[in-house]
Amino acid sequence: MKFGILINEGPFTHQASDTAYRFAVAALVKGHEIMRVFFYNDGVNNANRLSEPQSDDRNLVSLWSELGNKHGIDLVVCVAAALRRGIKDEILADGFRISGLGQLVEAGIEADRMVVFGD
């Protein structure tokens, strides 16, 4: 099955991105496709490559990058939400791209299932 994922929170204040990541990994293990992960609201902070968690903590920014590259997942950061929060191409982690809200709607149209993770 083809999944679309929406993440509305950043990598630290809420568990949302962690849960979404584990969900995505499990879906891939089960042979499903993640056609797009769309990052909205503070979720755009998941794409900030300047983020430096402590060494004994998980690094969701790199986890998403690696997962995206390994499985060809389209990691899309909402441009309007990103600009507000200072997330620009210059600081975008590997594998992410910035695009419009239309990409979220398109994911909803194309995916068999859309799952939203947030606060």
């Binding site: 509305n8 909205y40 609201n41 309007a80 939400a81 419009g100 809200l101 239309g102 979220l104 709607v105 398109e106 909803g108 149209i109």
Partner: peptide, 17 residues
């Protein structure tokens, strides 16, 4: 959340859904 949801809906309206 309220503002950013409204922004999504205004974009979503452009798709024929």
């Amino acid at each position: 959340y309220a503002l950013e949801c409204l922004e999504v809906v205004l974009i979503a309206a452009a798709f024929d859904q």
